[in-house]
Design a protein around this nucleic acid. Sequence first.
DNA 1: AAAAAGTTGGACTGGCCAGTCCAATGCCCA
DNA 2: TGGGCATTGGACTGGCCAGTCCAACTTTTT
Lengths: 204, 204
Amino acid sequence: MATNVLSRTGRARHEAILTAAARAFLEEGYGISIDRVAERAGVSKQTVYNHFGSKEDLFGEAVALLIQDLTVPLDTAPKDSDPEIVLRQLARQSLSMALEPEYLNGHRLMVAEAQRFPEFAAMAYEAGVARVTRSLANYLADQTARGRLAVKEATLAAEHFFGMVTGHIHLRALMGAGAIPTAEQIDRHVDLAVATFLRAYRPS
Amino acid sequence: MATNVLSRTGRARHEAILTAAARAFLEEGYGISIDRVAERAGVSKQTVYNHFGSKEDLFGEAVALLIQDLTVPLDTAPKDSDPEIVLRQLARQSLSMALEPEYLNGHRLMVAEAQRFPEFAAMAYEAGVARVTRSLANYLADQTARGRLAVKEATLAAEHFFGMVTGHIHLRALMGAGAIPTAEQIDRHVDLAVATFLRAYRPS
DNA sequence: AAAAAGTTGGACTGGCCAGTCCAATGCCCA
DNA sequence: TGGGCATTGGACTGGCCAGTCCAACTTTTT
């Protein structure tokens, strides 16, 4: 017979529980009870334990899944345009990603559980910020080699770029302080950050 | 008789419990039990409840105390020196503060409990980052008026400055990724951030 | 069609914790 | 010195939760 997509057993069920658990942890934190996770997954508690041995194991697999899902696609931008275009696009993309509720919740979860599960926070950092920063550093070095930028310390410059673009706004959103910035505010923020960066790093 | 500094009763005791609780929450999070707080304060559980009605109340007062204590002294720098000196000093100070374990723990605590106690995170943001950013924005506007800088959007520029200086390193420390930066690394980071900022904002 | 495997819900254990109660004890002030 | 007050520790309640167990039930496989 045709494979049942909504199979009530087997591997599909495993995945269904896992993604439900991931969303549950994201939204309600590690403190959520297994009973509640099971309820959200539409499954009995025992079934959760049949598939994942313990809460810690389930959390571990859920975080791994989240990290995988949230990992930035990266490198879809055409690298030949003017740096201003490339950087502006990168900045907009990074900032709107950083403000996404899912991403904010993920960040909160990692920070909140960094004591209990130190590896996960580090993994998330590596899969996210670190990867993107390295990629930008490569781009900056490359453009410098082509004479379109004058960046000496590419890694530091990349860190500074993301710090400028996301740092403050991200923090404010995390702390729930002030209103969520409007699209225009974000644009102004991004445009000025890119302009500042370029004023400092255009070849003279 | 002379007032007993280590008084076993009265207001001094109240303060003693409060500061012990503040440290306890900082180090072990809101999940810590009242029994443990009492133990750390060298006091019985009942006494904690005599002084503070509930765990939430105690947490509230503890956070208020922490916010007060950790609030940046601010404005001790001579504002007449060259902006490079002032900014470099400000950057160094902010970054080393952001990396202080006490400060990192406070940040973690606020982020972790932002759902349960949204007001506190917002208060901490206001008392910390927001205040300092406003102060820097004023300084930038002032120096621009004096012709020593050319900053148009002082608030945005100040946000960018702090983002550059603290953003990335702070995040890495929060996530427990990589080694704690050495003093030289911090200096390089700060010097380059200030240089970048000034290259963009020196009057031409 | 029947066995094997997976699922269900509900009951249960043991542990942790906020908050209360109380009788005994120590402290402070008149 | 004595009376009032805070403190103590230990027992206790009620609630929540991870994890287990089991007997009835459903799905899958052969």
